[in-house]
Design a protein around this nucleic acid. Structure first.
Length: 112
DNA sequence: GTTCTCACA
DNA sequence: TGTGAGAA
């Protein structure tokens, strides 16, 4: 217990992009059993990336986030489909907002 | 460690 | 909706 990162993962995009782990790690971190994760993926609720020639699933931080969010919603009583739908909508909305912010920023830049 | 499939609750 | 077990 000597790893005291003073960095904020949410602001370190390089770190975020390096956070691509196997299903075992994801299961370990999120507490969601590997079989559950595969089950969700089988249902089309989440997507994982197959790394190169291997068949093992790899998960980036977005997938992990998705798994965490869906798990929380399910624990709150939502069905799997409902939880997945909500998470999808939330992530899309967030993305849209940031795209608008990016456009606003570039517009102000061009305006000058 | 990972994958899949069949079966069961 | 999620798990157990067997096999590769």
């Amino acid at each position: 217990m000597s790893d005291n990162h003073e960095i904020d993962p949410l602001l370190d995009f390089d770190l975020l992009k390096k956070l691509v782990v196997g299903i075992g790690e994801v299961s370990d971190i999120t507490g969601v059993p590997t079989r559950k994760i595969r089950y969700w993926e089988e249902k089309g609720i989440i997507e994982s990336e197959k790394e190169g020639e291997g068949t093992t699933r790899r998960y980036n931080y977005i997938n992990i986030k998705k798994i965490l969010l869906i798990q929380e919603l399910i624990e709150e009583g939502f069905t799997l489909d409902a939880a997945a739908k909500k998470v999808e909508a939330r992530m899309k909305n967030i993305n849209d907002v940031f795209l608008k912010l990016a456009n606003t920023a570039s517009n102000e830049k061009n305006n000058e």
